[in-house]
Amino acid sequence: MPPHEIQAAFAAALIDTERPPPEGLIGRDGGPVARRFAVHRAARLAGLIGALEVRHPVVARLVGDAFFTAMAQAFVAAHPPASPLLLAWGDDLPAFLGRFRPSARIPYLADVARLESAWARAHHAAEAVALTPAALDALAPPDRQAATIVAHPSVGLVASDHPVVSIWLAHRRDGDPQPPAAWVGEAALVVRPEAEVRVHRLTPGAHALAAALLAGASVAAATAAAKAADESCDADAALADLVQFGAVTGFTSADPADRRL
């Protein structure tokens, strides 16, 4: 058998644990190979499951080791990594969990995974210098209304019908988590302006503003979106918060000339 066929058979049996080991393998003194081949299967799964656990420690704590291992195994089968860059693998986990029947009794699990994915992306995102509040203050009101933002490369937004930030915070460390004070939906802005990832709760209006700005809307349009989500929203304050959090690295004009402000 040529080497590429040997490798194809090896890979197929590695992935499909129902298959016997491929032909052409020999154990010690010509002995059996099933347990020896199983070492390779176990090493693959342990490595991939370990990578998911590094990315999703709170999901792992919420469901427990045995459940996490079984769930991760199903995820590996459905979404095997294409690249050896495992630190970037797992963005499909939230959607997978949303469809995963065994965890349907934990309806907030997918959103916790979404928050952890955003956290992981922020953790590994490129460095960039965030604007200070003074840069916002320096914008004259007409310029400010026409401005669009350049987001910090680490920024992510997560919105949930569940108190996802409270749940995540309560389970970040081992211990005895307290239930959220109120079971209301929460939205989070995830950002890493300096060394550490920060997670900020956003009001519905502030979330609408941030989502519109991240999608490229002008401050004026984003303000309208914020008011539509929550009439009482102070959009100016919400924008100032975004700058304060380090989520903005620049303002550009929404003007077609696209001049840098």
Binding site: I15, R44, P84
Partner: peptide, 14 residues
Amino acid sequence: SHDGRHLGEPLPLP
């Protein structure tokens, strides 16, 4: 790696 998949720990070759 095989067929567009990353298989984890390095595997043996003949």
